[in-house]
């Protein structure tokens, strides 16, 4: 029994209530549905977001980033395309508090993420990385929790759930916003599903009327 418990806790599958209390208090997400379902983002640790690119995964965290930027710096590591400043400004972010590291190899990206977290200057690190190894995940989690920062990993692949993740979400697009499914949540259950309406925040991207169906002649 003792051995089994130990094994489970080592695989991050069980948590002790006492250790978990402080992690529950989180950051408001800016989306009422999100806060109602999950009580906001975790205060610190690792967050994994699994989604296709360009469905609103960055938009989901923009209000959170605006909040975190009041207390520290932000770092974006290896975004898949060139970062446009205008949407960031529109979300109220300050560009001079954002560090952008691009075109790093996977190992360099992880190294940089750890250094950035350990420096204690940053409140959030956004990392585009296909998957995290057990060791890398553990290192990043320790660095993030030590400095009370968040590491948000964007990936198209489903995250390994044995990683010490505070929250793992799978995102899929809907006509009005996003459909979120909890893959893993510390001190809670997985499997929760809910939708998020982004129409109010980005009316231009989610028009009310029926969109124009357009099929390329050459393709269709």
């Amino acid at each position: 029994m003792q051995g089994l418990l130990e094994q489970l806790s080592r695989r991050q599958l069980i948590w002790q209530g006492s250790a978990v209390r402080q992690n529950i208090a989180g950051w408001p997400s800016g989306y009422p549905e999100f806060d109602q379902a999950l009580g906001g983002w975790p205060a610190q640790g690792l967050v994994a977001l699994q989604s296709l690119p360009a469905i609103g995964e960055l938009r989901l965290v923009l209000p959170l980033l605006g909040l975190l930027q009041q207390q520290g710096l932000l770092c974006l590591i290896n975004p898949p395309q060139q970062l446009q400043a205008e949407p960031l400004l529109a979300a109220g972010l300050q560009l001079h508090k954002i560090l952008l590291l691009s075109q790093l190899t996977g190992a360099d990206g992880l190294w940089a993420a750890e250094q950035v977290l350990r420096s204690g200057l940053f409140k959030a690190v956004l990392l585009w990385q296909p998957c995290l190894s057990q060791v890398a995940g553990r290192r990043l989690q320790l660095a993030a929790e030590q400095q009370q920062a968040l590491l948000i990993q964007f990936s198209t692949e489903t995250p390994t759930l044995s990683l010490p993740l505070a929250l793992a979400l799978s995102l899929s697009p809907t006509a009005q916003g996003l459909q979120l499914r909890v893959l893993k949540r510390r001190a809670s259950w997985a499997g929760l599903e809910f939708t998020l309406n982004m129409q109010a925040a980005w009316p231009a991207l989610y028009p009310q009327q029926n969109p124009v169906q357009f099929t390329l002649a050459a393709v269709g």
Binding site: Q81, Q84, V212, T215
Partner: peptide, 24 residues
């Protein structure tokens, strides 16, 4: 007000090769 701009912009435009719906 800010114009509608994508947060991630491709370094070079690429050919569109799939059916799309226009939203704007």
């Amino acid at each position: 007000p800010y114009a509608i701009r994508p947060s991630l912009q491709l370094a070079e435009p690429v050919n569109l090769t799939e059916p799309i719906q226009l939203l704007s």
